[in-house]
Design a protein around this nucleic acid. Structure first.
Lengths: 357, 357
DNA sequence: ATCGGTGGCAATATCGATAAAATCAGGTGG
DNA sequence: CCACCTGATTTTATCGATATTGCCACCGAT
């Protein structure tokens, strides 16, 4: 491993000059610079980031704690954040927390955090006190809605309003017996003081609010703690078993909704003719399922932008007043809630395919 | 930031003893250990990983270079590798290369690599010489099939054999006019010396091999350089436009296949009655699409296990002879290639849902 | 001729932890 | 009673880069 000292000797300068050339900070004469660069190229020198980090006190690495990486939503979020932070010269280490408290504690525990210049955390099982204790003075931006995170910068989506609009859409389309997949029971009050899965509880609250305006309507909530396609399929089946007259399915995430579409297909239930389905998150795959999935879009771009902005701000000024950003949202309606949208006439086997105009 | 020296002073010992307590290496008396641990807990001390890395010469971080993180396949792969390497006490930094040569060069360039103890690289546009030059003496495991990577440890999947089996499945089911989505033209010879997208070229070779056994059959290949759902939808439409009699669709990846399912639905083409569809990778979503997607499963567990094994081996012994692991594979047949599998009878609106038995 | 200013570069002192070697106390066998 | 060993702990010397300070030469201005 070639070191800066060796480069310096080969170029006939001091290590400090090499450092200055590489970081471009101080005044270095063009010929000296060129001489140093030549040696750097020739020897294949690479700065030792450990030494640099130690001396500078910064690593240039941001930790991203998410429940899972192999989900539509967090995969997309991770990809966007990685790309966006790269533009700021920051790299991202993704920590999979597994959506449980232990995993989240582990992810921000001990030595791990001090390798980071900042932390973006999508916590579901962690309280404010936990995060505060473990993160120390590390700049933290919390993702997702939590009720007790006032002391942190916080980027949330409009869980309640978005879910309310989603439920309203189903009800306005004539649904009378909703099933809500992935949220806690709707009967729970808003202020029960629980700290688990706030986002899902708030989405449930939105549904409750919409239901209040449609007196005849009923709703059944079924939940499991996982967020997989298989969970969505299983919960859809359970919902229809427990409430056979279900005619509208509101899913807490698009992943659950996409799984539910499959679960309904297994039961021979047609979407949207028999049951309307709407999801939450507007992941890319939602536009490409069959039928395509209506969803609440939380404004990913705005949220990523806000996350990065808040993080950079706090890294510059650790004592800034915590900011609370609420992203825009919109209901994106697709085939899964459009009653009229039957599949087009089936092409007879062997006939020419329709032309794209 | 509390330092080890401060802990040592507070506990009345030397920094070395604190270090020994924390790493558990040397003989430390129980009472001294306890005294140190008390101070550590009380002060909230955390080791400085930059200093540790500098001194130890290792970081405990593995770089993972993948084309994109927000795809079914690499999202899943990343999640598995992160989880698996965590068990070895190693963390993973994911680098998104964007599937182009520049991005891949960037990902393994300069200072980045020397922050890693090892590198797992899924390269598509990089040659062996590139990787060798940039990675230097860093332990590298290459993922995906490449023809010129003999000097590296290498975990590949059976692209050719898998694609051949997939094509054979379509042909045996009676397809006569295949469309191949996402591969280069089938006419190209195996040994054209090109270095781009080897995996896809090898998959094309497999298709060609299967075709040779079915003299009447034809095949059209359409390709774009991206691997998104939208690409799959667009290419499916293009294939049907250019070859209207297409009755079998073989997609180079499941992501393309899932997009193609949507594209076919847009055209009113029914899968599997009008066109059979098969993908490659067997991502989790393949089992949950409507219709569910037949696919070539490359044995993810075995590949992840082999990747980790080869990486750890090379980290221990940098001079080990490069090993070439070829994962098992299997064709997983689902609805998209099962002609008989019509959707079940549609439930009439309002009728009770079928019971799960 | 002197003085303040500036560009170009080097010497020094860390950043915080740890490997390796040294020290030291307390038994043990001869 | 001493040489010797072993476990417990400390001392010393880095790992490689960089912030800081300082030095020197050279410039125009007074």
């Amino acid at each position: 491993m070639v070191t800066m000292r060796e480069v310096a000797q080969a170029a006939g300068v001091s290590t400090m000059t090499v450092s200055n050339v590489l970081t471009g900070r101080r005044h270095v004469s063009p010929q000296t610079r060129q001489r140093v660069l030549d040696v750097v190229v020739r020897t294949g020198y690479q700065v030792n980031v450990a030494a640099r980090s130690l001396r500078r006190g910064r690593t240039g690495i941001i930790g991203l704690g998410v429940p899972e990486l192999d989900s539509h939503y967090f995969g997309m979020l991770g990809a966007r954040l990685v790309a966006r932070l790269a533009r700021e010269g920051l790299r991202v280490v993704v920590e999979q927390t597994g959506a449980d408290r232990e995993g989240e504690l582990e992810a921000i525990a001990d030595s791990r955090v001090n390798a980071y210049d900042g932390l973006i955390l999508s916590a579901s099982g962690l309280g404010s006190a936990d995060v505060a204790a473990l993160a120390g003075d590390l700049p933290v931006v919390m993702l997702g809605e939590r009720q007790d995170m006032h002391r942190f910068d916080h980027v949330e989506m409009s869980n309640t309003a978005g879910a309310e609009a989603a439920a309203r859409l189903l009800l306005e389309r004539g649904c009378e017996h909703l099933a809500v997949i992935g949220t806690p029971p709707l009967e729970r009050s808003d202020d029960d003081g629980g700290h688990q899965d706030d986002a899902f509880r708030l989405r449930a609250a939105g549904v409750r609010r919409a239901l209040a305006e449609f007196p005849g309507a009923t709703a059944l909530a079924v939940q499991e703690r996982t967020n997989h396609l298989s969970t969505g399929a299983a919960l859809a089946a359970e919902a229809l078993r427990r409430q056979p007259r279900t005619d509208g399915l509101l899913c807490a995430t698009d992943t659950l909704a996409l799984g539910a579409l499959r679960g309904l297909a297994d039961l021979g239930v047609h979407v949207p003719d028999d049951v309307l389905v709407i999801g939450f998150d507007d992941v890319p795959a939602a536009a490409y399922s069959v039928p395509s999935l209506s969803s609440v879009s939380p404004g990913h771009d705005a949220m990523v932008e806000a996350t990065v902005r808040l993080l950079l701000r706090r890294m510059r000024d650790p004592s800034a007043t915590p900011e609370h950003f609420v992203g825009p949202w919109a209901v994106v309606e697709r085939e899964s809630t459009r009653r009229g949208s039957r599949p087009r006439a089936r092409r007879s086997v062997g006939a020419p395919a329709p032309q794209r105009s």
